[in-house]
Design a protein around this nucleic acid. Structure first.
Lengths: 201, 201
DNA sequence: AGACTGAATGATCTGTTGATTATTCAGAAA
DNA sequence: TTTCTGAATAATCAACAGATCATTCAGTCT
């Protein structure tokens, strides 16, 4: 199976080069196969289809991002509230830069989320797991008072949806988006209701 | 000028019938003109183009919705918090029903928001005005503690963006959406942070 | 003059034809 | 037997022609 895995990564690497250079639509399976010195038919022994190669690339890339998010969410030097901010700012900045300057990445994002909606759901679920742990941690530290962290994580994701696909919603520049994210997170964390005394920092 | 206005409404009415019966794309200016017993060219003395007729229809329709929202937001029998809930539930339900059962309305919404992005901004701004007044009222009643109502209204709109275009984001059924809206609004109003004492109802 | 018409214009849509290309699979190679 | 090939298939895409339609405007009517 290690043999198979190595062929898989060879295919993924070849496809990655092609996709990022010429775009998803403009690269053919025959080209990827030829880059790997194999026949087009052989690709299908490793992937069900072209789209699944793209998904493998996206998954690999997203895993790196997830690792960073996990690091941000568990930084022992910072209070939970700050980690929550960092989490979503990291999210916004990554997406923005990735889609802003790289039309190839944008193309792939569009194709994958159209043809593989489950992938987007999987990403949300991955992050929700991190978020849930962060909320539980915040509860433990007395910084948050969230009765049902998993549901709450979902609500936070809903509230910040706009910042997850920044260029889909608005053509706002990054600084403006950051300003708005700041404001919305302030609401989510502190709410509209008055406090009788200052909340714990 | 009253003469002109009456012709305008005649045109809008004819277009409304055609659009809702056959769809925006499938009705021609010639048909609308003929329904009004006038030549196609004459339409352009009253509207710059076809899209502007659609915009006039949408505006008229939206005004009714706005009136209802204003009523909801200022209901003297209810606390501000409840009015805020009602406001966004009303918004969600209207959009959902309108776009759900009427593919013509959906088509027009798509066309207008693609070709006239300013229109969507105008709608947001209208609602933001109502929302700002509601927040100020809530502050006055001691129910809210919003330092800058106009900015805060914007943030609330951002957080609830997902519920403004329900079918664009998710294929969730209305009850699921309502449940989620409930959760997000809870967050926005009460926040994640603990309260030392119960907030004012 | 001012209100209107309707033919002319050019942009956009529709349907069709001929590639191109993802995917399959019968069979060759190992 | 298992691994791979590459021709065959079917789906999708690109380009083009013709038709349709939004928009304009020279000219008519009142």
């Amino acid at each position: 199976m290690s043999e198979k895995d190595s062929v898989r990564t060879q295919i993924v690497d070849a496809a990655k080069k092609r996709f990022s250079h010429f775009g998803y639509a403009k690269t053919t399976m025959a080209e990827v196969a030829s880059d790997c010195s194999m026949s087009p038919g052989n690709l299908y022994r490793f992937f069900p289809g072209k789209l699944d190669i793209a998904e493998a690339i996206a998954t690999e890339d997203y895993q790196k991002h997830l690792e960073l998010l996990r690091k941000v969410a568990t930084d022992p030097k910072k209070p939970a509230r700050e980690r929550l901010y960092d989490f979503f700012f990291e999210e916004l900045r990554r997406t923005f830069h990735k889609l802003e300057k790289d039309p190839r990445a944008y193309e792939m994002a569009v194709v994958i989320s159209r043809e593989k909606p489950a992938f987007a759901n999987w990403m949300l679920a991955q992050e929700r797991e991190i978020l849930t742990a962060l909320l539980e941690d915040g509860n433990r530290l007395g910084e948050f008072a969230s009765p049902k962290p998993p549901a709450c994580a979902e609500h936070i994701q809903s509230a910040l949806m706009k910042f997850r696909y920044p260029q889909l919603w608005s053509q706002l520049p990054l600084p403006k988006l950051e300003e708005e994210l700041e404001g919305v997170m302030g609401l989510v964390i502190d709410g509209l209701s008055p406090r009788k005394h200052e909340a714990a920092a």
